[in-house]
Design a protein around this nucleic acid. Structure first.
Lengths: 235, 235
DNA sequence: CCATGTGAATCTATTCACAGCG
DNA sequence: CGCTGTGAATAGATTCACATGG
């Protein structure tokens, strides 16, 4: 767990510094939700909606309006009191705060069903993520087309990451090989990794690893379902 | 720095009944981590390890040992002071606390790459989840084999859910149709839903919905990567 | 007026530190 | 002893409530 904050404290309420952009840290829980607001805003934009209130954006995002307003306050003051938010304007500012102003180049390791699903998932390009490579170890799969990409041999991982300029990697491969590939990815200089492999990966400090695990999600559902089944008399 | 986040969704009735001894609720953050400990324990079991300390189980799970011990304390006292935990014994008790003692029957809606990836994901059966049906709307896909299942027509959703006794549903389908299918699933009496569709689904109270979204995960990585790039001036 | 933006209060989670037991 | 289990302390997130300004 890296606690790499050196800033004393996020002192809010300072007037907007003209011309100077001081990067203030946004609480992790707020960052996760900001991505959701962003999607809701883009949906509204596609529907031609121009203004939105905290109340209705909150409802569309599944949070309380006070949570939404607090989250937005970490980004800045981009609303109009008594009116609401301009959809496009707010969307732009959240994108900027999240670092989505330039495209990120994503490489996917593993061209099984999951890797292919990710490579073809249309939602990425429209959100600033560009899938630039997909790898597999199976020689029967190397060279196949996936979307508009050709599957590279994982043996060439370092070279292809270098050549394509990938700065994010998604691991969609079996647990058994995940750590080894992860180590190579880190050694190749990629510091942002999203893993779908059902294992705890060890990474050095400074590397950002996120993990998605379907079995975990189902187990959490199971816990709640089981509780709901117990004869729970309220009073 | 990996972060798991716990359920932002469906609320559930609180169970503090005065005078009655009811299963105590485990904090959501702890539930999420208990699934990880469970996997680590099962790995150890497969390796033939019989005992483990909080320190090493914590390391294998990527948490601090105090967090681990606190989490286990919500489940019960199953360790031996001065020694550690018996792997199999602890695993059993965590499983029981999470409601994994009986099998859950999972239906997958959407037989695209993602749906197929999930259906074939071997990790489920060994963890108490049994995939009993997979659906698609495309008549070219209906009837195809996926693993040992045959793809059902989503038109028969209610009938097949009923017949197979599915009590969990995974939505692996396009955003545009997700809400409509979700409504039908809920109406059919399934109260535990895991969605991979990139939209906010609205469900009635009492329904447990969890959401996994790759775009969100990448955006969170982007935020951290962007921050790491900024020249961190320590005043 | 009205909805935003924000301190203050509350609630939840994590960490500390040590008592208690094998 | 050593390591678990747990109250107490700290840190973080959410909610409340209202001052603020278009």
């Amino acid at each position: 767990m890296s606690s790499l904050d050196s800033s004393p404290h996020a002192v809010e309420g300072t007037g907007a510094v003209p011309g100077g952009e001081v990067a203030k840290q946004i609480p992790p829980a707020a960052v996760a939700r900001l991505t959701i607001y962003l999607r809701a805003l883009n949906t509204l934009l596609a529907e031609g909606v121009e203004r939105v209130s905290s109340e209705s954006l909150a409802e569309a995002s599944g949070v309380s309006s006070s949570t939404l307003r607090k989250d937005l306050s970490y980004v800045g003051s981009y609303g109009t009191r008594g009116v609401g938010y301009e959809v496009q304007y707010l969307s732009r500012h959240i994108s900027a705060a999240l670092g989505l102003t330039h495209d990120w180049k994503v490489a996917i390791v593993g061209a099984g069903n999951l890797g292919k699903a990710l490579a073809r998932y249309g939602g990425f390009e429209t959100r600033g993520f560009d899938v630039v490579a997909i790898f597999d170890a199976d020689q029967m799969v190397v060279g196949n087309e996936v979307g508009w990409l050709r599957v590279s041999d994982v043996a060439d991982l370092e070279a292809v990451l270098e050549r394509t300029g990938a700065n994010m990697v998604v691991l969609a491969l079996p647990a058994a090989v995940a750590q080894a590939i992860c180590d190579r990815v880190v050694a190749a200089g990629v510091h942002s990794i999203l893993s779908f492999a059902p294992v705890m990966l060890q990474v050095p400090a400074g590397v950002n690893l996120r993990k998605v695990d379907m079995a975990t999600e189902l187990q959490i559902l199971a816990y709640h379902a089981q509780r709901a089944q117990t004869p729970d008399h309220t009073a």
